[in-house]
Design a protein around this nucleic acid. Structure first.
Length: 687
DNA sequence: GTCACAGAAATTTTT
DNA sequence: TTTCTGTGAC
């Protein structure tokens, strides 16, 4: 490529970024602090590799979410267009669409559909998401009569979590139990039996769960013959968010490129927040040990946050135990210190956040450039209600997704059973919808169906009295769907017609649910066929209900609410971190070990480093427990805001503001009256 | 066998 | 609040 274009390509990068982008074939670790232009560097590296003559179809780019992959491709396209599209450039623009970009799971799916046969995997395998896997675990658990014991057996979700840890951390069951689930150690033998049966059932059904996608990919790479085939497919492998990969993923990378030739990983050990998914910081910390000829580049110039915010976040992360030393600095000086807001009640917190958001909007910061972040999905319930009441539009990311609601899962289960009659999980789900058909009948019916593989075995079955009318219609619907060539939207429509009366019968509020299903029908038109839709929705579920309406237009402004986990990699002008009290951050669920608390600290750090210009951290002094009646407890500021860290914050209380501003805002909005005794009791937290 | 109900228990973050 | 298990009526 000519040097003119090369200069142009890199003129926006700083020396470290440029070094990383232009590094050769040897393994490279880019330690990129928050906001240091990690994506830009990775994108330029891809562009540079293409400019060097590497075929985009031979570059593998692994990201943490599909959203990140799409963003990466979009930006790489722009950089390449700038480079190759210049007058004077003699090169044809290489087709970036051939780039292999996606999550580990999405790429695994693609490779396994293509090469799976080599390891005995049929290419039309189905994919189970987390909740499908839990349902199957539950089914197998019932079959093994593990519930029938005097002591309570672990719940399906716990069983799944244990199984998943063994697989992803490549850890024997007793070890996994001892380190992460000590309260389940009495069940070691039963759990082993359960997992055995679970694995067999998946095989019979022809489905893979999330973990299987990684296991089979790894198996493919280590298989004689097939492994070389996959390895030869890629000249370059780039991995984003490397700090959140697990041991199995690290071994996949190792199997892809044992010497690390062509391997680039990018990450920030200070932002490792997925150990509950068996991710391990060791992958990034030990990268130079695993690949002895690796180079390490550290990016420290922050382009995101103003210096006062950086000072605060640097102080927060300085409390972490082991990490690559980084000291982020910014040329974006000026700006105000982050604010710690102590609120009396949760209502005060919502009120403060909304008032501040609106004030910023008045000053020209659109809603979409502001975000409210929280540890757990339910932390935003009250705020959501208040936003809705005041007519402020918002999108919520994380937490319960559209496709996880019962009615959507019901409808999808029809499609899935039609696609794969051996899918016991889907079969169980929809048979249970029919009147007069319970667990016993379901088990027998699914047994017969799995044997025959065709719905005709159900035609001559005599249903119980309650189901005589619906049964023939039900069987006809599924046989038709099983064989159909009809448009996907038509199929969804047929299911919807059949399901509507069941839905009305089953739920108190059927109307919004019915509307969701109409949306699902519209969504179906985006996919080529049924199998594609089922797989894609499992691997990449719509992040928020509002996403279904299609890409938002420019003038359509909304506030972002997100769990901290879902906010990873993103940034906003103004960020509000709510419920920053001990018990929420760190979560009560995660204070068992030192490592867990460390991870919560990093999580808090991730939240704070999303902010560009304004950062507000708040917590209510009174925290209501939603479970177990009306009890509440007095909350304390998160332990991560130690005295030393607080020096970088301006501290305010909503109490003080309240007396001054309350009349103007109107007490009728929040007629809540707090007793003086609480008021006095709480004062010690800030006086 | 199904179904509705009661009481107890767990309780986060996501590909 | 949801999830799980046991009980008793049909």
């Amino acid at each position: 490529m000519d040097c003119l274009a090369s200069d142009h390509l890199f003129e926006h990068l700083n020396p470290q970024q440029r070094f990383a982008a232009q590094h050769g074939e040897d393994p490279l670790l880019i330690v990129a602090g928050a906001g240091t232009g990690k994506t830009a560097t990775l994108v330029h590296r891809v562009a540079w590799q293409i400019a060097q003559g590497i075929d985009p179809g031979r570059i593998l780019l692994l990201t943490f979410t599909r959203r990140a992959a799409a963003e990466m491709i979009r930006r790489a396209e722009r950089v390449i267009e700038r480079t190759f599209g210049r007058p004077g450039s003699t090169h044809a623009r290489p087709p970036i669409t051939r780039l292999w970009a996606g999550t580990f799971h999405a790429i695994a799916t693609r490779l396994l559909r293509r090469y799976g046969k080599a390891i005995g995997l049929a290419p039309d395998f189905g994919i189970h998401d987390r909740s499908d896997s839990e349902d199957l675990m539950h089914l197998v658990r019932t079959e093994l009569h593990l519930a029938k014991t005097d002591k309570r057996f672990p719940q399906k979700g716990t069983c799944m979590a244990i199984y998943s840890r063994c697989v992803n951390a490549r850890q024997p069951l007793p070890d996994a139990l001892a380190t992460h689930f000590p309260w389940c150690m009495d069940w070691t033998e039963e759990l082993a039996r359960l997992f055995d049966a679970y694995v067999d059932r998946k095989e019979q059904m022809g489905v893979l769960d999330y973990d299987d996608l990684l296991i089979y990919w790894h198996a493919l790479l280590t298989a004689e013959g097939a492994g070389d085939l996959v390895r030869q497919q890629f000249d370059r492998v780039l991995v984003d968010e490397y700090q959140d990969t697990n041991l199995l993923q690290a071994e996949i990378l190792y199997a892809l490129s044992p010497e690390g030739r062509g391997l680039t990983v990018v990450g920030d050990d200070a932002q490792a927040i997925y150990s509950f998914r068996a991710a391990t910081v060791r992958n990034i910390l030990d990268f130079p040990k695993h690949y002895p000829n690796a180079s390490v580049v550290t990016l420290e110039e922050n382009y995101r946050s103003r210096q006062p915010i950086l000072d605060a976040t640097n102080a927060v992360i300085a409390q972490a135990a082991e990490r690559y030393a980084k000291n982020l600095w910014s040329k974006r000086s000026g700006g105000s210190r982050p604010v710690l807001v102590t609120c009396e009640e949760e209502e005060d917190q919502s009120d403060f956040v909304i008032r501040t958001i609106l004030a910023h909007r008045e000053a020209g910061i659109a809603l979409r450039r502001q975000a409210v972040l929280f540890r757990a999905s339910h932390h935003s319930i009250l705020l959501e209600a208040e936003l809705a009441r005041r007519g402020i539009p918002f999108h919520k990311y994380g937490g319960l997704k559209f496709v996880e609601t019962a009615h959507v899962k019901d409808l999808m289960a029809f499609l899935r059973l039609a696609e794969n009659p051996r899918d016991v999980v889907s079969g169980n789900r929809i048979l249970a919808l029919l009147p007069g058909i319970g667990p016993q009948t379901t088990a027998r019916l699914m047994g017969r169906l799995a044997e025959a593989g065709d719905f005709s075995v159900w035609t001559d079955w005599k249903p119980p009295a309650a189901a005589t009318e619906i049964w023939p219609k039900f069987v006809k619907l599924l046989s038709d769907l099983h064989r159909t060539q009809a448009e996907l939207t038509t199929q969804v429509h047929q299911v919807r017609l059949f399901y509507q009366p069941l839905l009305e019968d089953r739920y108190d509020n059927p109307h919004p649910r019915a509307r969701d299903l109409e949306q699902l029908e519209a969504l179906a038109s985006r996919y080529a066929d049924r199998a594609t839709m089922l797989a894609e929705i499992t691997l990449d579920p719509p992040a928020s209900t509002q996403d279904l309406a299609g890409p938002p237009t420019l003038d359509d402004d909304y506030l972002v609410l997100s769990t901290i986990h879902s906010a990873k990699g993103l940034e906003w002008d103004a960020v509000y971190v709510i419920h920053a009290s001990d018990g929420n951050i760190p979560s009560d669920m995660a204070t068992g070990t030192r490592e867990e608390v460390e991870e919560e600290l990093r999580l808090f750090y991730v939240a704070l480093t999303r902010a560009r210009d304004w950062l507000y951290v708040s917590f209510p002094l009174r925290y209501y427990h939603y479970r177990g009646g009306d009890r509440f407890s007095l909350a304390q500021r998160t332990r991560f805001l130690s005295k030393a860290v607080l020096k970088h914050f301006a501290c305010r209380t909503v109490l003080a503001e309240r007396t001054a501003e309350r009349p103007a805002l109107g007490d009728e909005v929040h007629p809540h009256v707090t007793s003086p005794s609480i008021r006095n009791r709480t004062k010690r937290y800030w006086s």
